[in-house]
Amino acid sequence: MSASTIHRSAELLDPEFMARLDQLDIVSRKIFAGKMKGERRSKRKGQSVEFADYRNYVVGDDLRFLDWNIYGRLERLFLKLFLEEEDLHVSILLDTSRSMDWGEPHKGLYARRVAAALAYIGLCNYDRVSLYAYADTLRHELPGVRGRRLMHRIISFLQETPYEGSNHLAAAARTFAVRHPQRGVLIIVSDFFDKGGFETGLRYLLGRNLDVYAVQVLAPGEIDPTFAGDLRLRDVEDADVAEVTISRALVNRYKQNLQAYCQSLREFCTRRGICYLFTSTEVPFDQLVLNYLRRRGLLR
């Protein structure tokens, strides 16, 4: 697959996939209607009715929010604080660096399907869904889509975004953080193979007080390499070359390193309240969304 692979709509939107998305829709609505009732701030229930806390009145506060009943009893001014109602802003940060254009099953396609599914679920719930494609920086964006009927925009965005550049999360995250001060849910779908390190980028995002989810997508060929012989491994992103003679020891060492890398990513995320998800492109897509993501808490 070339670096400028454009996924045909059939690949993302084949009937099977759409049927699954519909299933997801049902499932997600079940989720929202049942388990989640009363726990989620919803625009449709009216404005600012949920009491949160009191605090002492200071000069300049809006007098409308003084609690006069308490003043009557205690003759002291307290201000009622209500939870602010606002849109849930779901941002999906999709890695479209060339390293995603690799693997069998294809990593990029898998990541886009995850993004599409999550976006679809968001749209179904009237969340504001923004899509960002990043590589060495934020390359393409589709901000603020709301409503299920706009799903086609999401799909066409995912289809048309090319694979280009190398993975540089730090730069992309900084740009994202500067441009988007809103709070909300941020989902990063990437392989996290960032030679500059993933830590800086994630720190930028944490600084924005976002609810961050990191979904690491790897191909089976990366998890359990099937190479043999004397090889010149060429990095598809930066044409870096590693000359290796494949031996059992080397492969074992690679696997240990991969595990350690994923483990360090997981630890980094867990310590900072980022929810980390790992998936192989071998895991059936619907299984990931229906079971795995729910279990990991991404879907509530």
Binding site: E222, D230, L231, R234, V244, L250
Partner: peptide, 22 residues
């Protein structure tokens, strides 16, 4: 004889590390 076969990989990051480790 040692003509290495050219193989594209998603990232040489871990391979370089593995070779160095060994």
């Amino acid at each position: 004889k040692l003509k290495r076969q050219d193989v594209p990989v998603s990232s040489t990051l871990l391979w370089q590390r593995a070779v160095q480790d060994l």
